[in-house]
């Protein structure tokens, strides 16, 4: 099971990112644990300066913008 974290302070793009990952995961039938990280110290600790960022199993795979659908599919 993949652990996915969406880094972001609750802005519109962060919410859209969260929703899109949720949707793609459900469509593909992949089991994931999805969580939001809203604490700035933690976000910065991942080395992310432009939100939203996406972390999968502890590794930053994306930063700065809503990821494309194909991108999300390739992560899963």
């Amino acid at each position: 099971m993949k652990n996915i974290k969406v880094l972001g302070s609750g802005c519109a793009n962060c919410k859209a990112t969260f929703a899109r990952i949720e949707k793609v995961a459900r469509a593909k039938g992949v089991a994931v644990t999805l969580e939001k990280v809203e604490d700035f110290a933690q976000i910065a600790a991942y080395g992310v300066m432009s939100t939203p960022g996406v972390v999968i199993d502890g590794k930053v795979v994306h930063a700065g913008g809503i990821p494309e659908q194909q991108q999300i599919e390739s992560w899963l």
């Binding site: 994306h62 930063a63 991108q71």
Partner: peptide, 11 residues
């Protein structure tokens, strides 16, 4: 005190 370490470049 924050250590950012490796900066994640936007993909």
């Amino acid at each position: 005190q924050i250590q950012m370490g490796e900066i994640a470049q936007p993909a």
